[in-house]
Lab assay of single mutants.
Amino acid sequence: NDEAKKEAEKLWKNNKSEDEIKERLERAGISPDEAEQWLQELR
């Protein structure tokens, strides 16, 4: 999970869309709710 979150953070810094980041997190096995929460922390 931490690995996926690091990846999400990297994508965020590269200005990827939130949808793309969420999709990537969900593919890594993170629930949509958790993915949404993680994005809010990044904002």
Rank of each mutant, 00 (worst) to 15 (best):
1 N>C: 15
1 N>M: 14
1 N>P: 13
2 D>K: 10
2 D>V: 12
2 D>L: 13
2 D>Q: 12
3 E>I: 11
4 A>E: 04
4 A>Q: 06
5 K>Q: 03
5 K>I: 05
5 K>W: 15
5 K>A: 02
5 K>R: 12
6 K>W: 08
6 K>T: 07
6 K>D: 05
6 K>H: 05
6 K>A: 10
6 K>S: 07
7 E>A: 07
7 E>N: 04
8 A>I: 09
8 A>T: 03
8 A>H: 01
8 A>S: 03
9 E>T: 09
9 E>Q: 10
9 E>H: 11
9 E>S: 09
11 L>V: 02
11 L>T: 02
11 L>A: 05
11 L>P: 01
12 W>A: 01
12 W>V: 00
12 W>R: 00
12 W>G: 00
13 K>N: 07
13 K>G: 05
13 K>T: 05
13 K>M: 10
14 N>L: 13
14 N>Y: 08
14 N>S: 12
14 N>K: 08
15 N>C: 15
15 N>P: 02
15 N>V: 02
15 N>E: 04
15 N>L: 06
15 N>Q: 06
16 K>R: 11
17 S>R: 04
17 S>E: 04
17 S>N: 08
17 S>P: 06
17 S>F: 04
17 S>M: 04
18 E>K: 05
18 E>Y: 12
19 D>L: 11
19 D>V: 10
19 D>I: 10
20 E>F: 12
20 E>C: 14
20 E>K: 03
20 E>V: 06
21 I>N: 00
21 I>E: 02
21 I>G: 00
22 K>N: 02
22 K>Q: 03
22 K>G: 00
22 K>R: 14
23 E>M: 12
23 E>I: 08
24 R>Q: 13
24 R>M: 15
24 R>E: 10
24 R>T: 12
25 L>D: 01
25 L>F: 02
25 L>P: 00
26 E>A: 14
26 E>I: 15
27 R>I: 10
27 R>K: 11
27 R>M: 12
28 A>R: 10
28 A>H: 10
28 A>S: 06
29 G>Q: 02
30 I>S: 02
30 I>W: 10
30 I>E: 02
30 I>T: 03
30 I>P: 00
31 S>Y: 02
31 S>T: 10
32 P>Y: 06
32 P>W: 10
32 P>A: 11
32 P>V: 08
32 P>I: 06
33 D>T: 08
33 D>N: 08
33 D>L: 11
33 D>C: 13
33 D>V: 11
33 D>W: 13
34 E>Y: 04
34 E>M: 14
34 E>S: 04
34 E>K: 09
34 E>G: 02
34 E>V: 14
34 E>R: 09
35 A>W: 08
35 A>F: 06
35 A>I: 15
35 A>V: 14
35 A>T: 06
35 A>G: 01
35 A>K: 01
35 A>C: 12
36 E>C: 11
36 E>N: 08
36 E>F: 07
36 E>H: 05
37 Q>I: 09
37 Q>S: 09
37 Q>R: 13
37 Q>H: 06
38 W>T: 02
38 W>R: 01
39 L>F: 06
39 L>Q: 01
39 L>G: 00
39 L>S: 02
39 L>W: 04
39 L>N: 00
40 Q>A: 13
40 Q>K: 11
40 Q>I: 10
40 Q>L: 12
40 Q>T: 09
41 E>M: 13
41 E>N: 11
41 E>T: 12
41 E>K: 13
42 L>M: 09
42 L>N: 01
42 L>D: 00
42 L>S: 02
42 L>Q: 04
43 R>F: 09
43 R>S: 03
43 R>Q: 05
43 R>A: 04
43 R>E: 03
